[in-house]
Design a protein around this nucleic acid. Structure first.
Length: 190
DNA sequence: TAAGTGATAGTT
DNA sequence: ACTATCACTTAG
């Protein structure tokens, strides 16, 4: 199980967001492996008004300015975590929000973590996939090239990509910074 | 469609 | 200190 190299992440955020589609997020919890194929992403970077980095460096968004290939995890709406992967060179803010996964392994444990047996609602949203894979604040700034949370290459490489607008933001709604795998049933919203 | 939930960041 | 806001989810 070879993690994607740091160089994969240290590029333009939009490029990384597109290329993360089809890759596999792997979470080890004890002897269990929870894994899912990334099917939907969003890019946030620099002076984008929808990005946490819009007004520059703050304690919360600091990881976005740091080394690529690490996690940026934050808590929203008093209930949920969102998992992002840091992109760009050090000093340039960028991160890709992972919005949806197609479950691959560890589905019974995901069902317990999510308190549902409905396969389609296990990981089809940013807060849902964090709950399913038990990703919380402790993974903020975790290195995704080693450890209990990794991203590896995926088996299936042939798929169509849809590029469209982001979800759940008020500013910069028109920017086409969301990517998803066409016709995939685990995408949060078409 | 709307309420719930609590940390964050910007303003007093 | 105070408060508006929020890269969401679930129930209704």
């Amino acid at each position: 199980m070879i993690p994607l190299p740091r160089s994969f992440y240290r590029r333009r955020t939009l490029t990384v967001a597109r290329e993360l589609l089809g890759k596999v997020l792997v979470r080890k919890v004890g002897k269990q492996i929870l894994a899912g194929r990334i099917v939907e992403t969003e890019a946030y970077f620099g002076a984008d008004p929808a990005s946490h980095s819009y007004r520059g460096l703050t304690p919360r968004c600091k990881p976005m300015f740091e080394e690529a290939g690490h996690a940026y995890v934050y808590f929203v709406y008093g209930n949920h975590y969102c998992f992002n992967v840091v992109t760009e060179q050090v000093g340039r803010a960028g991160a890709v929000l992972i919005r949806a996964l197609e479950p691959i392994s560890g589905i019974p444990l995901m069902e317990r973590n999510r308190k549902t047996k409905e396969k389609h609602s296990l990981t089809n949203g940013p807060g849902k996939l964090c709950a399913a894979l038990k990703i919380d604040q402790q993974f903020n700034r975790a290195d995704l090239t080693k450890g209990n949370l990794l991203i590896i290459d995926g088996a299936q490489k042939k798929f169509r990509i849809v590029r469209t607008t982001r979800i759940g933001i008020r500013e910069a709604k028109e920017r086409l910074y969301r990517f998803y795998i066409k016709n995939n049933e685990f995408v949060s919203r078409k």
